[in-house]
Simulated assay, not measured.
Amino acid sequence: MTGSLPLSALQHWLFCPRQGALIHAERLWAENRFTAEGRLLHERADAGHPETRDGVRVLRNVQIASEKHGLHGVADVVEMRGHTPYPVEYKRGGPKAHRADEVQLCAQALCLEEMTGTPVTEGALFYGTRRRRAIVLIDAPLRHLTLQVATEAQAAISDGILPAPVYEAGRCEACSLLDLCRPTARRSAVRRSFAQRIAQAGIPE
């Protein structure tokens, strides 16, 4: 879809704008243990045929899109509760301090609303570490945040803007793109650590 942004780009952008640009503008990718575990979880969620459980139609690997908001992608699971779609997104880890996962789910809801003409007021995130769902209300503040992130990411990626790297140990060390990103703060930290070791060993620089 020309001019349309993948739903995953919103999650990447809110987590780290530079990561979002590296993946969706620079077309760079690398895999580590965390991304491999996430890929396997999604493959399991996407596998299988549509089925009906307790009157709920369960659809898997659903192609969705919103022309109005310029978004497209795949929903892991969409439960049809009567005529109302209920998106369920699978994540390998656990709940986060940021709202990137919720934004991705909300973007799915916006696509499903446009496709079905039915309001979507709730969805769920299934976290692999907890093995249970976290209910997410698709309310006004989350919708506002989602559209704000979408607008910002679409503009930057369309213009080929690559945000400067900002090193945060907890976030960066788990990122599969760390070696491709090379945040300067990390290099500075490595240099300081090396200098300290030299000083402690009494070796002249």
Rank of each mutant, 00 (worst) to 15 (best):
V103P: 13
D46K: 03
A107H: 08
V74Y: 11
G55W: 12
G70E: 12
E79N: 05
E79Q: 09
I23A: 02
P95H: 09
G94E: 09
H72K: 12
E89M: 12
E89F: 04
L110W: 08
A107Y: 12
R33G: 15
H83V: 13
V74S: 06
D54Q: 15
W29C: 06
T84G: 08
C111G: 12
D76M: 01
A36S: 11
H98F: 10
C16Y: 04
I64R: 03
E51K: 11
A47D: 08
V74F: 12
T52F: 02
P87D: 03
R81T: 07
N61W: 00
W13E: 06
P95D: 08
Q108W: 07
E43I: 01
A36E: 11
E31C: 00
M80E: 15
L71E: 14
R27E: 14
Q108N: 10
C16D: 03
L112H: 12
H12P: 00
V58H: 04
H69R: 05
E37A: 12
I23D: 00
K91P: 05
E31K: 07
P50C: 02
K91Q: 09
G82M: 14
C106W: 04
E37T: 04
A97P: 09
L71F: 13
H24W: 15
L105W: 08
F34N: 03
N32C: 05
A21M: 07
C16K: 00
V58A: 00
Y90Q: 02
D46G: 01
I23K: 01
W13M: 05
H42T: 01
A45W: 03
